[in-house]
Computed example of a mutant assay.
Amino acid sequence: MKKNRQTALIHAPRKAPQYISTVQPPLFRASTIIFESTDALFNRHWTDRYDYSYGTHGTPTTFTLGDQIAQLEGGEYSLLAPSGLSAINLVNSCLLAHGDEVWVANNIYGPNMEHLRNLQTRYGIDVKVYNPIDASTFQPSDKAKLIWLEAAGSITLEFPDLTQLVKKAQAHQVLTVLDNTWGAGLAFNAFDFGAEHLSVDITVHALTKYPSGGGDILMGSVVTRDQKLHHQLFRMHAIQGIAISGDDAAQVQRSLASMQVRYEHQSQSALTLMQWLKQQPEFAQVLHPADSASAGHTYWEEICTNGHSAGLVSVIFQPEYDLKAVRAFCDRLSLFKLGFSWGGPISLVMLYDLKGMRALEHTHLQQGLLVRFCIGLEHPQDLIQDIENALKQLKILQNE
């Protein structure tokens, strides 16, 4: 049939072969997906491993990335979300209902706690708080449905007693969800860890951080080994219309090849920085799970047998340094930029006041303002010099 030129522009009479072998896989951008026949349309189901029915369910680009993330985490099934927080909210909204009890560490990622408190107010979810380095504080009732784990914890970087917490949760049939952004699937295998080869039920990972590596992509993942649990999460994923851009997926996929190299470099740089920071009198405490003086160090040693510890290190200033002084210190840093997130090429710094941020008493923490350093790809000696220069300026200000 001869076509009008306008129609021919849409329905091209000739197409190049669709597949070639390349270093990077082809990028698929799709909302609508074309079915070859009514058989192809109706002989499919949303539970199929690769359900090509609509862009929100997935394309070869997003499914390929999802498979790679599942493999990285040690799981079997993966769902992708527009951000780490979106992935967290997917788990909470899918698995928690009125009257359920959810347990969270007192060093949990702040926005997760805020979301759970919102669910508590609106839908009657009972939020309980435990101390991650003391498994005895986790006391689930018969209504307990879920426990959130973080390794290491947000900001103050305590490594939890994963072994005892997971064993206790399993004994009470409580689902375990690990925010694995710090470990990134590289520090330890969340689905096979410790001498007893324990496993969490679900991992959530902010792919915004190490997998992206550029500080320019927002994305999250939810990984599990259990098909029934995956289908439950996938159903909510579809109902909520959660989807990611094919372009973003391709960018993260491209970065995965260098992820372990970057992670190990940033981890080693953080260790170098940590050792230097411990010698500086301005700091009352240095927080890093690989430091023998840090809370949860023995648990880190037990689980992270490869010695990896991510690229984060926090310090607590001596009490005589007030908010004005610590803000001045942050402002005088040159290589460290003020900004949230981590895992990118540029080192970041962020200031926190722990008062009001912890729901339980943390006796191991010194009094004072906390600064978190997120190590990028700069040479560690240059980063040390940057901090040293800012501390010199701080001393001058204190003496004026």
Score class of each variant (00 low, 15 high):
Val223Ala: 07
Ser212Met: 07
Gly215Asn: 00
Gln251Cys: 03
Asp247His: 13
Asp247Trp: 06
Asp247Pro: 00
Thr272Tyr: 12
Val204Trp: 11
Ile239Asn: 05
Gln170Gly: 06
Lys278Phe: 07
Ala187Lys: 00
Ile244Val: 12
Leu218Val: 02
Val252Ala: 13
Trp276Tyr: 10
Tyr210Ala: 10
Val200Thr: 10
Leu277Pro: 15
Gly183Met: 00
Ala171Glu: 01
Ala206Phe: 00
Asn189Arg: 03
Gln266Arg: 02
His231Tyr: 02
Met219Asp: 07
Ala250Ile: 03
Val200Gly: 04
Thr203Val: 13
Gly185Pro: 02
Gln275Phe: 09
Gln268Pro: 14
Gln260Leu: 15
Ile202Asp: 07
Leu178Ile: 01
Gln240Ala: 14
Ala190Arg: 07
Val252Pro: 12
Gly215Val: 06
Leu256Tyr: 09
Tyr210Phe: 15
Thr181Gln: 01
His197Ala: 09
His205Ile: 15
Ala257Glu: 09
Gly215Lys: 01
Ile244Lys: 02
Ser258Asp: 05
Arg262Gln: 09
Ser269His: 14
Glu196Arg: 02
Gly185Leu: 02
Met259Cys: 02
Thr272Trp: 10
Ser221Val: 04
Leu198Val: 08
Ser267Glu: 06
Gly214Cys: 03
His197Lys: 12
Ala250Arg: 10
Trp182Arg: 07
Ala190Glu: 08
Gly220Ser: 01
Val252Cys: 13
Glu196Ala: 12
Met274Phe: 13
Glu264Tyr: 13
Val223Cys: 04
Gln275Thr: 15
Asp216Glu: 02
Leu229Ile: 03
Arg254Asp: 10
Met259Glu: 05
His172Lys: 10
Asp226Ser: 12
Ser245Cys: 11
Leu233Pro: 03
Ala195Asn: 14
Thr203Asn: 08
Lys209Gly: 02
Glu196Phe: 03
Ile242Glu: 06
Asp247Tyr: 08
Lys168Asp: 01
Ala243Pro: 06
His265Glu: 14
Ala238Glu: 05
Asp216His: 07
Ile217Trp: 01
Thr272Pro: 06
Gly246Tyr: 01
Asp216Leu: 03
Ala184Lys: 09
Arg235Ala: 14
Pro211Val: 09
Gln251Ala: 14
Ala257Gln: 10
Gly246Ser: 08
Leu198Gln: 04
His265Lys: 13
Pro211Lys: 03
Ser199Trp: 04
Gly183Ala: 07
Leu218Gln: 15
Thr208Leu: 10
Gly220Asn: 02
Ala171Trp: 00
Ile244Pro: 00
Asp247Arg: 09
Ala249Glu: 03
Ile239Phe: 05
Val261Ser: 14
Ser221Gln: 08
Gln240Arg: 13
Met236Val: 07
Ile244Cys: 08
Ile217Arg: 11
Met259His: 03
Gly220Thr: 05
Ile239Tyr: 00
Gln260Asn: 11
Gly215Trp: 04
Ala187Thr: 12
Trp276Ser: 15
Arg262Ile: 05
Lys278Asp: 12
Ala184Met: 01
Asn180Ala: 11
Glu196Tyr: 02
His230Cys: 14
Gln232Asn: 09
Lys228Glu: 14
Gln268His: 11
Tyr263Val: 13
